[in-house]
Simulated assay, not measured.
Amino acid sequence: MNRFLLAFVLCLAPVLPAQAYWEYGHETVAQIAQANMSPMARAHMQRLLRAAPNLGTPTCPMQNIGDVSVWADCIKRDRVRWGYTNSWHYQNVDICKPFDLKSACADGNCVSAQIDRNFALLANKALPAHVRLEALAFLVHFVGDIHQPLHAGDRSDRGGNDLKTTYGIMPGYNLHSVWDGLLADRAISAAPSIVRAFSPAEKAAVEQGNAQSWSEENWAISKNVAYPRALDGDPCGAKPTMPVIIDEADVAASRAALRQQVERGGIRLARLLDEALT
């Protein structure tokens, strides 16, 4: 029976809907931010959450920061109303050329531009509460997205979505989904917990910068860690014709980088929320 259930789950795996950084990654970034933002900012956020019914998204509730962190993925199911937001979750910056954010975000429909836009909307206290709450939800989500390296780096394969993989014994995935969920789950779950209040010195070391510098940082991890591990060293070589194998050595070499970016995302998000809400 156990073998049958495992085979059934593996058969379903390739058709499971793709999420941007899956729920666990986004919720962890948000929880780190909540643990490190000021009490005043947390109080302002709680007041904004009362406006959730005015957004008209009852199937995508926002009762706490965990809900807030995945709202932007939840609403994408309504393609008629929210389909235009799909391109806001990523930016395909070519890892095989010098870093060039402008070419990947010429019209502002990319994750870094939307971090800046929604920060400005959240900070504008003249706007109605439900407008600022929507901006809060997008901001929380997109800071998580930009800290998933395959939302920042690309080699003409939609951030690894077209690079098929076998993860251990599990076929049917791609490099993007491995970093979004499977690898992220293992990296985040490792002890000690990364959801904690960081010291002022720890925060000072990583919280500075902006959406553009964070973009380049995660693009570099995509270039120097994610793709080389999957492609046996050459991130810009010939495209594989068969699924690449992500083995335990690849997981061990990649896990620390992903865990570090989740931490950094949460600390940086806390800084943005403090600045926008207080």
Results as ranks from 00 to 15, higher is better:
206 V>R: 11
146 I>Y: 02
131 V>D: 08
139 L>A: 02
137 A>V: 15
128 P>G: 04
133 L>D: 05
130 H>V: 15
116 D>L: 15
134 E>C: 13
204 A>N: 04
174 N>H: 04
154 D>E: 14
172 G>W: 00
162 D>T: 00
155 R>H: 14
149 P>E: 05
176 H>Q: 01
147 H>M: 01
135 A>I: 05
137 A>H: 04
128 P>H: 08
123 A>K: 11
204 A>R: 06
119 F>G: 09
114 Q>V: 12
193 S>V: 08
154 D>Y: 01
181 G>N: 05
133 L>P: 06
188 I>A: 06
154 D>K: 00
135 A>N: 00
119 F>M: 15
113 A>D: 11
121 L>K: 13
188 I>P: 03
151 H>W: 00
200 P>H: 06
196 R>K: 08
128 P>T: 08
205 A>R: 03
153 G>V: 03
206 V>N: 09
140 V>A: 03
184 A>D: 00
181 G>M: 05
116 D>S: 15
124 N>H: 13
171 P>V: 06
129 A>K: 13
175 L>S: 00
139 L>I: 06
153 G>C: 07
160 G>M: 02
163 L>K: 06
144 G>C: 06
181 G>C: 04
188 I>D: 03
190 A>V: 13
202 E>M: 08
143 V>N: 04
151 H>C: 04
195 V>K: 09
148 Q>D: 02
206 V>Y: 12
191 A>M: 08
174 N>L: 01
194 I>M: 07
161 N>C: 01
140 V>P: 02
140 V>I: 11
129 A>V: 12
149 P>V: 02
116 D>N: 11
173 Y>R: 09
157 D>T: 00
141 H>A: 02
124 N>R: 15
184 A>F: 01
142 F>A: 04
131 V>A: 15
178 V>D: 01
171 P>M: 04
115 I>Q: 08
120 A>P: 08
201 A>E: 14
193 S>I: 09
193 S>N: 10
158 R>F: 03
132 R>S: 07
190 A>G: 14
166 T>W: 14
157 D>Y: 00
158 R>D: 04
127 L>Y: 07
150 L>N: 00
189 S>Q: 15
192 P>Q: 05
205 A>I: 08
157 D>N: 02
112 S>P: 13
165 T>N: 09
142 F>R: 13
196 R>E: 14
196 R>G: 08
125 K>Q: 15
171 P>A: 05
173 Y>L: 10
177 S>I: 00
206 V>W: 10
141 H>N: 02
200 P>F: 07
124 N>Y: 13
137 A>Y: 04
182 L>E: 07
186 R>W: 14
134 E>R: 12
191 A>P: 05
114 Q>W: 09
204 A>W: 01
145 D>W: 09
120 A>M: 12
